[in-house]
Simulated assay, not measured.
Amino acid sequence: MSNEPSHLIVRYLSNEATPEEQEELLNWVSASADNQRIFQQYAVAWNKDEVRIPVVNKTRALQSLNGHIDLIEEESLKRSRPLWLKIAATVTILAISSFFVWSVVLSPSEIEYAVASTISGQRTTIQLADGSTVHLNASSSLRYPIQLNDDTREVFLEGEAFFEVSRDPSKPFIVHTDAVATEVLGTSFNINADSATVAVTVATGKVRVSDHLKQEILLPNEHLDIVRHSGEMNRSHVELGVALAWMNNTIVFDDVALDDAARKLERWYGVKIVLESSRLSHCRITGTYRGESLRHVLEAIHFTTGAQFQISDNGRVTLSGKGCE
């Protein structure tokens, strides 16, 4: 059809779609059975060179997709619910619908996956079938198998999580973050995958991080940044207490640019922070805050940078001032 949003479908299947684009696509898919069929055809074609497509029960697949779409439409009718609940439900449903394409339509072994998602300001712990534990940070999502298969233990992460992996040399544990794979046998490590980089920090054991071109072996207290757009890998040594502070409900800023600090505070407190002047992004801050309120942290930023702050009724924070050189 001429009106099919092929660009949105491609961005969605390549994990590049923004939340707004995901919502637009799912609205289009839910509009008709023809749109659902077109979406399924794209999904199968997208992966045909990577996996062997089994005989698919199309009726079952369509019913499953319809079920997820019905949930979206049902949520859209509940206008009285708080905005953050609507966002959380939408994000979770979008994640489940995309994983449905893999597990029901594309997976030769018919592996069943579960999805755990957190919203801004929320953290959770997940116990996997092999005994491994995953601590999921705010605004993050983990797709993991409900039961183990015979060869590997593979999970899929968006956002940040700390993994405590049960040792099993016969079944490598692999964390996928887009094109980057982190493989271990039994260890503990942190992964933070944002829009610009994938960062891996090792607490115990040994970790292998690889993309399509190269790989690095990391040991305890080592940290690796992989730049998404270039694939560049930068290794360094870190202080684990700083790198893993979020697990102790602690925010640590160590000479951090104010705009980067603002993004971290957004995820931590579930707010939107706007810098009125680009010169504010030149300011750098240092500080440790454990269990502190947002207002307390903002007051500390004001004291060190001179930036004024205003918190609106809807939770939006505006930072203003002359900024820094």
Rank of each mutant, 00 (worst) to 15 (best):
Q63P: 10
S236H: 08
E112C: 15
S236Y: 05
L85R: 11
V29Q: 05
P5H: 02
N3G: 11
A89H: 13
F173V: 11
P108N: 00
F39I: 00
V271R: 01
K78D: 03
R37E: 11
Q127T: 07
N57A: 07
T124Y: 09
N314P: 04
G306E: 04
T18L: 08
R290A: 05
R11D: 13
S195R: 06
C283D: 03
E276D: 14
E164N: 15
H7E: 12
E232H: 09
E276I: 08
P169W: 05
I251R: 03
A196L: 13
A43I: 00
N35F: 01
E164C: 14
S195W: 04
I9A: 14
D178Q: 14
N192S: 07
Y269R: 03
R11T: 05
I69F: 15
R208E: 01
S97F: 04
Q308L: 12
A31L: 09
A89E: 12
T304K: 08
A243V: 09
S141D: 00
D178W: 10
Q22W: 11
H68N: 14
V271S: 03
R60P: 02
D168N: 14
Y113L: 14
V297H: 00
C283L: 04
N192A: 08
I72T: 07
V184T: 02
R79K: 15
P169K: 03
K171V: 07
R284M: 01
A138C: 07
L83N: 13
H237G: 09
T204M: 04
T92Y: 13
P54A: 03
P145C: 09
F156G: 05
N66T: 13
D259T: 08
D150L: 13
I285L: 14
D313Q: 10
R316I: 09
V44R: 15
S76F: 05
D70L: 13
Q22F: 06
S140A: 07
